[in-house]
Design a protein around this nucleic acid. Structure first.
Lengths: 218, 218
DNA sequence: TAATGTACGTTGCATTTGCAACATAGGAGA
DNA sequence: TCTCCTATGTTGCAAATGCAACGTACATTA
Protein backbone atom coordinates (compact mmCIF):
# COMPACT_ATOMS: atom_id res chain seq x y z
CA UNK A 1 0.00 0.00 0.00
CA UNK A 2 3.03 2.27 0.10
CA UNK A 3 2.15 3.49 -3.37
CA UNK A 4 -0.67 5.51 -1.81
CA UNK A 5 1.92 7.80 -0.28
CA UNK A 6 2.77 8.99 -3.76
CA UNK A 7 -0.79 9.03 -5.00
CA UNK A 8 -2.05 12.62 -5.32
CA UNK A 9 -5.54 11.49 -4.42
CA UNK A 10 -4.29 10.66 -0.94
CA UNK A 11 -2.09 13.72 -0.52
CA UNK A 12 -2.28 15.16 2.97
CA UNK A 13 -3.79 12.00 4.41
CA UNK A 14 -1.53 10.11 6.74
CA UNK A 15 -1.02 6.35 6.39
CA UNK A 16 -2.30 6.01 9.93
CA UNK A 17 -5.64 7.33 8.71
CA UNK A 18 -6.02 4.90 5.83
CA UNK A 19 -7.51 2.24 8.07
CA UNK A 20 -10.48 4.45 8.77
CA UNK A 21 -10.73 5.86 5.31
CA UNK A 22 -10.56 2.85 3.04
CA UNK A 23 -13.57 0.97 4.41
CA UNK A 24 -15.47 4.23 4.36
CA UNK A 25 -14.75 4.49 0.63
CA UNK A 26 -15.64 0.85 0.20
CA UNK A 27 -12.35 0.59 -1.66
CA UNK A 28 -11.56 -2.85 -3.02
CA UNK A 29 -8.05 -4.12 -3.38
CA UNK A 30 -7.75 -6.64 -6.17
CA UNK A 31 -4.89 -8.57 -7.69
CA UNK A 32 -4.52 -9.10 -11.41
CA UNK A 33 -2.33 -11.48 -13.36
CA UNK A 34 -0.26 -10.32 -16.30
CA UNK A 35 -2.50 -9.60 -19.31
CA UNK A 36 -5.64 -9.64 -17.21
CA UNK A 37 -8.19 -6.91 -17.88
CA UNK A 38 -8.80 -4.41 -15.09
CA UNK A 39 -11.31 -2.34 -17.05
CA UNK A 40 -12.88 -3.43 -20.29
CA UNK A 41 -14.10 -1.03 -22.97
CA UNK A 42 -17.84 -0.22 -22.85
CA UNK A 43 -18.13 -1.05 -19.17
CA UNK A 44 -19.77 1.62 -17.03
CA UNK A 45 -17.17 4.06 -15.72
CA UNK A 46 -17.82 3.66 -12.02
CA UNK A 47 -14.39 3.23 -10.53
CA UNK A 48 -11.24 5.21 -10.08
CA UNK A 49 -8.24 2.87 -10.21
CA UNK A 50 -5.02 3.34 -8.25
CA UNK A 51 -2.00 1.22 -9.10
CA UNK A 52 -0.54 -0.22 -5.87
CA UNK A 53 2.03 -2.47 -7.49
CA UNK A 54 2.89 -3.70 -10.96
CA UNK A 55 1.74 -1.70 -13.97
CA UNK A 56 -0.90 -1.49 -16.67
CA UNK A 57 -1.53 -0.21 -20.15
CA UNK A 58 -4.49 1.99 -20.96
CA UNK A 59 -5.37 0.86 -24.47
CA UNK A 60 -7.89 1.95 -27.04
CA UNK A 61 -9.06 0.31 -30.24
CA UNK A 62 -10.16 2.37 -33.20
CA UNK A 63 -12.96 1.55 -35.63
CA UNK A 64 -10.73 -0.75 -37.66
CA UNK A 65 -9.40 -2.61 -34.64
CA UNK A 66 -6.00 -0.93 -34.44
CA UNK A 67 -4.79 -0.87 -30.87
CA UNK A 68 -3.13 2.17 -29.42
CA UNK A 69 -1.47 2.43 -26.03
CA UNK A 70 -2.62 5.72 -24.57
CA UNK A 71 -0.61 5.62 -21.37
CA UNK A 72 1.26 3.28 -19.11
CA UNK A 73 0.44 3.58 -15.42
CA UNK A 74 2.77 2.65 -12.57
CA UNK A 75 2.39 2.50 -8.78
CA UNK A 76 0.83 5.68 -7.43
CA UNK A 77 -0.86 6.53 -10.73
CA UNK A 78 -4.59 7.00 -11.16
CA UNK A 79 -6.69 5.91 -14.10
CA UNK A 80 -10.33 6.38 -15.02
CA UNK A 81 -10.70 9.41 -12.78
CA UNK A 82 -11.77 11.90 -15.44
CA UNK A 83 -14.35 9.54 -16.93
CA UNK A 84 -15.95 8.55 -13.68
CA UNK A 85 -16.06 12.17 -12.50
CA UNK A 86 -17.51 13.24 -15.83
CA UNK A 87 -20.27 10.69 -15.48
CA UNK A 88 -19.42 9.00 -18.76
CA UNK A 89 -21.72 6.06 -19.23
CA UNK A 90 -19.29 3.68 -20.89
CA UNK A 91 -15.52 3.51 -20.84
CA UNK A 92 -13.87 4.38 -24.16
CA UNK A 93 -10.78 2.33 -23.34
CA UNK A 94 -9.58 -0.81 -21.63
CA UNK A 95 -6.93 -1.21 -18.96
CA UNK A 96 -4.75 -4.32 -18.98
CA UNK A 97 -2.17 -5.36 -16.42
CA UNK A 98 1.25 -5.67 -18.04
CA UNK A 99 2.53 -7.68 -15.10
CA UNK A 100 1.13 -9.11 -11.89
CA UNK A 101 -0.43 -6.07 -10.23
CA UNK A 102 -2.40 -4.91 -7.23
CA UNK A 103 -5.05 -2.31 -7.93
CA UNK A 104 -7.22 -0.30 -5.57
CA UNK A 105 -10.67 0.33 -7.01
CA UNK A 106 -12.70 3.15 -5.52
CA UNK A 107 -16.32 3.78 -6.38
CA UNK A 108 -16.39 7.38 -7.54
CA UNK A 109 -19.77 7.99 -5.94
CA UNK A 110 -18.25 7.18 -2.57
CA UNK A 111 -15.68 9.89 -3.12
CA UNK A 112 -18.02 12.60 -4.29
CA UNK A 113 -20.66 12.16 -1.63
CA UNK A 114 -19.95 12.95 1.95
CA UNK A 115 -20.33 9.77 3.93
CA UNK A 116 -22.83 9.23 6.70
CA UNK A 117 -20.08 9.39 9.30
CA UNK A 118 -19.05 12.74 7.81
CA UNK A 119 -15.42 11.71 7.93
CA UNK A 120 -13.02 14.55 7.51
CA UNK A 121 -10.91 12.74 4.94
CA UNK A 122 -13.61 13.00 2.36
CA UNK A 123 -13.21 16.74 2.24
CA UNK A 124 -9.51 16.40 1.69
CA UNK A 125 -9.95 13.73 -0.94
CA UNK A 126 -12.46 15.81 -2.85
CA UNK A 127 -10.12 18.78 -2.75
CA UNK A 128 -7.36 16.49 -4.02
CA UNK A 129 -9.53 15.28 -6.88
CA UNK A 130 -10.41 18.85 -7.84
CA UNK A 131 -6.74 19.69 -7.82
CA UNK A 132 -5.80 16.67 -9.93
CA UNK A 133 -8.43 17.38 -12.55
CA UNK A 134 -7.75 21.10 -12.66
CA UNK A 135 -4.04 20.56 -12.95
CA UNK A 136 -4.42 18.14 -15.84
CA UNK A 137 -6.78 20.62 -17.40
CA UNK A 138 -4.23 23.40 -17.26
CA UNK A 139 -1.50 21.20 -18.70
CA UNK A 140 -3.69 19.95 -21.51
CA UNK A 141 -4.79 23.46 -22.38
CA UNK A 142 -1.22 24.72 -22.51
CA UNK A 143 -0.12 21.87 -24.73
CA UNK A 144 -3.11 22.40 -26.97
CA UNK A 145 -2.13 26.01 -27.47
CA UNK A 146 1.24 24.91 -28.76
CA UNK A 147 0.31 22.02 -30.99
CA UNK A 148 -2.66 23.76 -32.52
CA UNK A 149 -0.18 25.94 -34.41
CA UNK A 150 0.23 24.80 -37.99
CA UNK A 151 3.97 25.07 -38.50
CA UNK A 152 6.89 23.74 -36.53
CA UNK A 153 8.24 27.25 -36.14
CA UNK A 154 5.02 28.53 -34.65
CA UNK A 155 4.80 25.54 -32.33
CA UNK A 156 8.32 26.21 -31.13
CA UNK A 157 7.71 29.91 -30.68
CA UNK A 158 4.52 29.21 -28.74
CA UNK A 159 6.29 26.73 -26.49
CA UNK A 160 9.40 28.81 -25.93
CA UNK A 161 7.43 31.98 -25.39
CA UNK A 162 5.35 30.27 -22.73
CA UNK A 163 8.52 29.08 -21.02
CA UNK A 164 9.99 32.56 -21.16
CA UNK A 165 6.88 34.20 -19.79
CA UNK A 166 6.73 31.66 -17.00
CA UNK A 167 10.41 32.10 -16.14
CA UNK A 168 10.08 35.84 -16.66
CA UNK A 169 13.31 35.78 -18.62
CA UNK A 170 14.46 35.61 -22.19
CA UNK A 171 17.05 33.07 -21.11
CA UNK A 172 15.46 29.72 -20.40
CA UNK A 173 16.45 26.12 -19.76
CA UNK A 174 14.02 23.52 -20.99
CA UNK A 175 13.39 20.18 -19.40
CA UNK A 176 13.04 18.19 -22.63
CA UNK A 177 15.56 16.48 -24.83
CA UNK A 178 15.15 17.19 -28.53
CA UNK A 179 13.32 13.93 -29.07
CA UNK A 180 11.00 14.60 -26.14
CA UNK A 181 10.32 18.13 -27.33
CA UNK A 182 9.54 16.82 -30.81
CA UNK A 183 7.15 14.26 -29.34
CA UNK A 184 5.52 16.89 -27.13
CA UNK A 185 4.99 19.22 -30.08
CA UNK A 186 3.95 16.34 -32.37
CA UNK A 187 6.63 16.88 -35.02
CA UNK A 188 9.64 14.99 -36.33
CA UNK A 189 12.84 15.35 -34.40
CA UNK A 190 14.80 16.14 -37.54
CA UNK A 191 12.28 18.73 -38.64
CA UNK A 192 12.56 20.28 -35.19
CA UNK A 193 16.35 20.46 -35.42
CA UNK A 194 16.14 21.86 -38.91
CA UNK A 195 13.69 24.54 -37.85
CA UNK A 196 15.68 25.47 -34.75
CA UNK A 197 18.69 25.96 -36.98
CA UNK A 198 16.66 28.11 -39.35
CA UNK A 199 15.36 30.20 -36.47
CA UNK A 200 18.87 30.74 -35.20
CA UNK A 201 19.93 31.80 -38.71
CA UNK A 202 16.96 34.15 -38.88
CA UNK A 203 18.05 35.78 -35.63
CA UNK A 204 14.98 34.82 -33.61
CA UNK A 205 16.86 33.00 -30.91
CA UNK A 206 20.08 31.41 -29.83
CA UNK A 207 20.65 28.10 -28.14
CA UNK A 208 23.17 25.61 -26.99
CA UNK A 209 21.94 22.27 -25.75
CA UNK A 210 18.88 22.88 -23.59
CA UNK A 211 19.49 26.54 -22.97
CA UNK A 212 17.57 28.94 -25.21
CA UNK A 213 17.83 32.69 -25.47
CA UNK A 214 14.93 34.43 -27.12
CA UNK A 215 15.75 37.64 -28.91
CA UNK A 216 13.48 40.63 -28.97
CA UNK A 217 12.55 41.86 -32.40
CA UNK A 218 14.77 44.63 -33.63
CA UNK B 1 -28.97 36.77 -12.48
CA UNK B 2 -30.89 34.57 -14.90
CA UNK B 3 -27.60 33.51 -16.44
CA UNK B 4 -26.98 31.34 -13.40
CA UNK B 5 -29.74 29.04 -14.56
CA UNK B 6 -27.55 28.06 -17.48
CA UNK B 7 -24.32 27.99 -15.51
CA UNK B 8 -23.20 24.41 -14.95
CA UNK B 9 -21.71 25.39 -11.60
CA UNK B 10 -25.22 26.05 -10.33
CA UNK B 11 -26.86 23.03 -11.93
CA UNK B 12 -29.39 21.38 -9.67
CA UNK B 13 -29.62 24.42 -7.42
CA UNK B 14 -32.91 26.25 -7.60
CA UNK B 15 -33.06 30.03 -8.00
CA UNK B 16 -34.98 30.15 -4.74
CA UNK B 17 -31.90 28.81 -3.00
CA UNK B 18 -29.51 31.37 -4.39
CA UNK B 19 -30.36 33.88 -1.69
CA UNK B 20 -28.98 31.56 0.94
CA UNK B 21 -26.07 30.33 -1.15
CA UNK B 22 -24.53 33.48 -2.53
CA UNK B 23 -23.72 35.19 0.78
CA UNK B 24 -22.41 31.87 2.03
CA UNK B 25 -19.97 31.85 -0.92
CA UNK B 26 -19.18 35.47 -0.30
CA UNK B 27 -19.84 35.94 -3.98
CA UNK B 28 -19.39 39.48 -5.26
CA UNK B 29 -21.36 40.86 -8.12
CA UNK B 30 -19.46 43.54 -9.97
CA UNK B 31 -20.13 45.63 -13.03
CA UNK B 32 -17.52 46.38 -15.63
CA UNK B 33 -17.46 48.92 -18.41
CA UNK B 34 -16.46 48.01 -21.93
CA UNK B 35 -12.69 47.41 -22.13
CA UNK B 36 -12.33 47.23 -18.38
CA UNK B 37 -10.12 44.48 -16.98
CA UNK B 38 -11.83 41.80 -14.90
CA UNK B 39 -8.67 39.78 -14.30
CA UNK B 40 -5.19 41.01 -15.05
CA UNK B 41 -2.30 38.74 -15.93
CA UNK B 42 -0.01 37.83 -13.01
CA UNK B 43 -2.70 38.44 -10.43
CA UNK B 44 -3.22 35.60 -7.95
CA UNK B 45 -5.82 33.15 -9.28
CA UNK B 46 -8.29 33.31 -6.45
CA UNK B 47 -11.62 33.76 -8.14
CA UNK B 48 -13.91 31.87 -10.40
CA UNK B 49 -15.77 34.25 -12.66
CA UNK B 50 -19.30 33.77 -13.95
CA UNK B 51 -20.61 36.01 -16.71
CA UNK B 52 -24.07 37.30 -15.73
CA UNK B 53 -24.49 39.72 -18.61
CA UNK B 54 -22.38 41.14 -21.38
CA UNK B 55 -19.29 39.30 -22.50
CA UNK B 56 -15.52 39.18 -22.19
CA UNK B 57 -12.39 38.09 -23.96
CA UNK B 58 -9.83 35.87 -22.32
CA UNK B 59 -6.59 37.18 -23.76
CA UNK B 60 -2.98 36.19 -23.47
CA UNK B 61 0.19 37.98 -24.47
CA UNK B 62 3.23 36.07 -25.60
CA UNK B 63 6.85 36.95 -24.91
CA UNK B 64 6.95 39.43 -27.77
CA UNK B 65 3.73 41.13 -26.79
CA UNK B 66 1.48 39.57 -29.40
CA UNK B 67 -2.05 39.33 -28.11
CA UNK B 68 -4.13 36.25 -28.67
CA UNK B 69 -7.80 35.82 -27.85
CA UNK B 70 -8.12 32.42 -26.23
CA UNK B 71 -11.87 32.38 -25.77
CA UNK B 72 -14.88 34.63 -25.66
CA UNK B 73 -17.19 34.10 -22.73
CA UNK B 74 -20.89 34.92 -22.68
CA UNK B 75 -23.58 34.85 -19.98
CA UNK B 76 -23.55 31.55 -18.11
CA UNK B 77 -19.91 30.83 -18.93
CA UNK B 78 -17.22 30.31 -16.34
CA UNK B 79 -13.65 31.51 -16.50
CA UNK B 80 -10.64 30.99 -14.30
CA UNK B 81 -12.05 27.83 -12.78
CA UNK B 82 -9.23 25.48 -13.75
CA UNK B 83 -6.52 27.83 -12.56
CA UNK B 84 -8.05 28.59 -9.22
CA UNK B 85 -8.79 24.90 -8.59
CA UNK B 86 -5.27 23.98 -9.64
CA UNK B 87 -3.86 26.41 -7.15
CA UNK B 88 -1.90 28.32 -9.76
CA UNK B 89 -0.21 31.23 -8.09
CA UNK B 90 -0.50 33.76 -10.88
CA UNK B 91 -2.91 34.05 -13.76
CA UNK B 92 -1.35 33.42 -17.17
CA UNK B 93 -4.00 35.49 -18.95
CA UNK B 94 -6.18 38.56 -18.61
CA UNK B 95 -9.93 38.89 -18.97
CA UNK B 96 -11.38 42.04 -20.49
CA UNK B 97 -15.02 43.00 -20.81
CA UNK B 98 -15.94 43.49 -24.46
CA UNK B 99 -19.09 45.36 -23.50
CA UNK B 100 -20.70 46.58 -20.31
CA UNK B 101 -20.93 43.41 -18.23
CA UNK B 102 -21.97 42.01 -14.88
CA UNK B 103 -19.68 39.40 -13.42
CA UNK B 104 -20.08 37.18 -10.36
CA UNK B 105 -16.77 36.57 -8.63
CA UNK B 106 -16.56 33.60 -6.28
CA UNK B 107 -13.60 32.91 -4.06
CA UNK B 108 -12.58 29.40 -4.93
CA UNK B 109 -11.66 28.61 -1.34
CA UNK B 110 -15.25 29.24 -0.35
CA UNK B 111 -16.36 26.64 -2.85
CA UNK B 112 -13.88 23.95 -1.94
CA UNK B 113 -14.29 24.18 1.80
CA UNK B 114 -17.50 23.21 3.48
CA UNK B 115 -18.88 26.26 5.19
CA UNK B 116 -19.43 26.63 8.89
CA UNK B 117 -23.19 26.37 8.44
CA UNK B 118 -22.60 23.12 6.53
CA UNK B 119 -24.99 24.21 3.84
CA UNK B 120 -26.11 21.45 1.56
CA UNK B 121 -25.52 23.47 -1.60
CA UNK B 122 -21.81 23.28 -1.17
CA UNK B 123 -21.86 19.57 -1.76
CA UNK B 124 -23.79 20.03 -4.96
CA UNK B 125 -21.57 22.83 -6.10
CA UNK B 126 -18.42 20.81 -5.50
CA UNK B 127 -19.90 17.91 -7.44
CA UNK B 128 -20.73 20.34 -10.24
CA UNK B 129 -17.19 21.66 -10.28
CA UNK B 130 -15.78 18.13 -10.42
CA UNK B 131 -18.09 17.39 -13.30
CA UNK B 132 -17.15 20.55 -15.18
CA UNK B 133 -13.44 19.93 -14.85
CA UNK B 134 -13.68 16.23 -15.66
CA UNK B 135 -15.81 16.89 -18.67
CA UNK B 136 -13.42 19.46 -20.07
CA UNK B 137 -10.64 17.02 -19.38
CA UNK B 138 -12.28 14.31 -21.42
CA UNK B 139 -12.97 16.65 -24.33
CA UNK B 140 -9.45 18.02 -24.33
CA UNK B 141 -7.97 14.54 -24.22
CA UNK B 142 -10.08 13.39 -27.15
CA UNK B 143 -9.17 16.39 -29.23
CA UNK B 144 -5.52 15.93 -28.36
CA UNK B 145 -5.63 12.37 -29.67
CA UNK B 146 -6.80 13.67 -33.03
CA UNK B 147 -4.60 16.66 -33.53
CA UNK B 148 -1.46 14.95 -32.32
CA UNK B 149 -1.50 12.96 -35.57
CA UNK B 150 0.95 14.35 -38.07
CA UNK B 151 -1.01 14.25 -41.30
CA UNK B 152 -4.44 15.54 -42.21
CA UNK B 153 -5.48 12.04 -43.25
CA UNK B 154 -4.54 10.57 -39.90
CA UNK B 155 -6.29 13.37 -38.06
CA UNK B 156 -9.43 12.74 -40.06
CA UNK B 157 -9.27 8.98 -39.55
CA UNK B 158 -8.77 9.47 -35.83
CA UNK B 159 -11.70 11.84 -35.59
CA UNK B 160 -14.05 9.82 -37.77
CA UNK B 161 -13.09 6.56 -36.11
CA UNK B 162 -13.90 8.03 -32.70
CA UNK B 163 -17.26 9.19 -34.00
CA UNK B 164 -17.97 5.76 -35.44
CA UNK B 165 -17.00 3.94 -32.27
CA UNK B 166 -19.15 6.29 -30.24
CA UNK B 167 -22.13 5.91 -32.55
CA UNK B 168 -21.40 2.19 -32.87
CA UNK B 169 -21.94 2.45 -36.61
CA UNK B 170 -19.90 2.91 -39.74
CA UNK B 171 -22.48 5.43 -40.89
CA UNK B 172 -22.14 8.69 -39.02
CA UNK B 173 -23.37 12.26 -39.14
CA UNK B 174 -20.99 14.87 -37.87
CA UNK B 175 -21.90 18.10 -36.18
CA UNK B 176 -19.24 20.26 -37.80
CA UNK B 177 -19.22 22.20 -41.03
CA UNK B 178 -16.08 21.74 -43.10
CA UNK B 179 -14.63 24.98 -41.80
CA UNK B 180 -15.39 24.02 -38.21
CA UNK B 181 -13.92 20.59 -38.67
CA UNK B 182 -10.79 22.11 -40.18
CA UNK B 183 -10.49 24.50 -37.24
CA UNK B 184 -11.04 21.67 -34.77
CA UNK B 185 -8.35 19.54 -36.38
CA UNK B 186 -6.04 22.53 -36.83
CA UNK B 187 -5.67 22.25 -40.61
CA UNK B 188 -6.65 24.32 -43.63
CA UNK B 189 -10.16 23.93 -44.90
CA UNK B 190 -8.97 23.43 -48.46
CA UNK B 191 -6.42 20.82 -47.38
CA UNK B 192 -9.21 19.06 -45.52
CA UNK B 193 -11.43 19.01 -48.59
CA UNK B 194 -8.56 17.83 -50.74
CA UNK B 195 -7.72 15.01 -48.35
CA UNK B 196 -11.33 13.92 -47.99
CA UNK B 197 -11.50 13.64 -51.77
CA UNK B 198 -8.30 11.62 -51.82
CA UNK B 199 -9.63 9.29 -49.14
CA UNK B 200 -12.82 8.75 -51.08
CA UNK B 201 -10.76 7.96 -54.20
CA UNK B 202 -8.65 5.55 -52.15
CA UNK B 203 -11.77 3.73 -51.01
CA UNK B 204 -11.42 4.48 -47.32
CA UNK B 205 -14.78 6.15 -46.96
CA UNK B 206 -17.71 7.76 -48.65
CA UNK B 207 -19.49 10.95 -47.80
CA UNK B 208 -22.08 13.42 -48.86
CA UNK B 209 -22.36 16.62 -46.91
CA UNK B 210 -22.08 15.82 -43.22
CA UNK B 211 -22.81 12.11 -43.54
CA UNK B 212 -19.79 9.85 -43.62
CA UNK B 213 -19.60 6.12 -44.22
CA UNK B 214 -16.42 4.42 -43.14
CA UNK B 215 -15.43 1.37 -45.11
CA UNK B 216 -13.84 -1.67 -43.58
CA UNK B 217 -10.53 -2.67 -45.07
CA UNK B 218 -10.89 -5.31 -47.75
C1' DT C 1 42.78 3.31 -25.80
C1' DA C 2 39.31 1.33 -28.58
C1' DA C 3 34.67 0.15 -29.07
C1' DT C 4 30.00 1.16 -28.39
C1' DG C 5 25.87 3.74 -27.68
C1' DT C 6 23.24 7.91 -27.57
C1' DA C 7 21.90 12.56 -28.62
C1' DC C 8 21.84 15.93 -31.93
C1' DG C 9 22.57 18.20 -36.35
C1' DT C 10 22.43 17.86 -41.56
C1' DT C 11 20.70 16.73 -45.98
C1' DG C 12 18.20 14.79 -50.21
C1' DC C 13 13.89 13.70 -51.74
C1' DA C 14 9.10 12.67 -52.12
C1' DT C 15 4.92 14.04 -50.14
C1' DT C 16 1.94 17.04 -47.74
C1' DT C 17 0.35 21.39 -46.55
C1' DG C 18 -0.70 26.26 -46.54
C1' DC C 19 -2.18 29.79 -49.26
C1' DA C 20 -4.58 32.15 -52.70
C1' DA C 21 -7.60 32.20 -56.26
C1' DC C 22 -11.36 30.47 -58.64
C1' DA C 23 -15.41 27.19 -59.68
C1' DT C 24 -19.73 25.14 -58.37
C1' DA C 25 -23.91 24.16 -55.90
C1' DG C 26 -27.73 25.24 -53.12
C1' DG C 27 -30.55 28.31 -50.34
C1' DA C 28 -32.68 32.78 -49.14
C1' DG C 29 -34.87 36.56 -50.55
C1' DA C 30 -36.20 40.30 -53.92
C1' DT D 1 -36.83 33.62 -62.05
C1' DC D 2 -32.84 36.14 -60.97
C1' DT D 3 -29.44 37.66 -57.79
C1' DC D 4 -26.72 37.42 -53.85
C1' DC D 5 -24.49 34.84 -50.36
C1' DT D 6 -22.44 31.05 -48.16
C1' DA D 7 -20.48 26.50 -48.01
C1' DT D 8 -17.76 23.46 -50.30
C1' DG D 9 -14.71 21.52 -53.86
C1' DT D 10 -10.61 22.29 -57.03
C1' DT D 11 -6.13 23.59 -58.38
C1' DG D 12 -1.32 25.69 -59.06
C1' DC D 13 2.55 26.69 -56.63
C1' DA D 14 5.82 27.63 -53.09
C1' DA D 15 7.05 26.22 -48.66
C1' DA D 16 7.05 22.98 -44.93
C1' DT D 17 7.32 18.36 -43.38
C1' DG D 18 8.06 13.41 -42.92
C1' DC D 19 11.25 10.07 -43.66
C1' DA D 20 15.52 7.89 -44.11
C1' DA D 21 20.23 8.01 -44.05
C1' DC D 22 24.45 9.68 -42.45
C1' DG D 23 28.00 12.56 -39.79
C1' DT D 24 29.70 14.37 -35.44
C1' DA D 25 30.34 15.02 -30.55
C1' DC D 26 30.36 13.16 -26.17
C1' DA D 27 30.05 9.83 -22.56
C1' DT D 28 30.39 5.14 -20.91
C1' DT D 29 32.54 0.87 -20.61
C1' DA D 30 35.41 -3.00 -21.84
Amino acid sequence: MDALKECPLFAGIEPSQWKALLPCLNAQRRSYAKDEYIFRVDEPALFVGVVLSGGAHVIQEDFWGNRAILTHVVPGDLFGEALSCAGTDRLPFSVVATEASDILLIDYRRISRVCSSACVFHARMIANMLHILADKNVRLTQKMEHISKRTTRDKLLSFLSAQAVQADSHDIAIQFSRQELADYLCVERSALSRELGAMKRDGLLDYTKNRFILKTLS
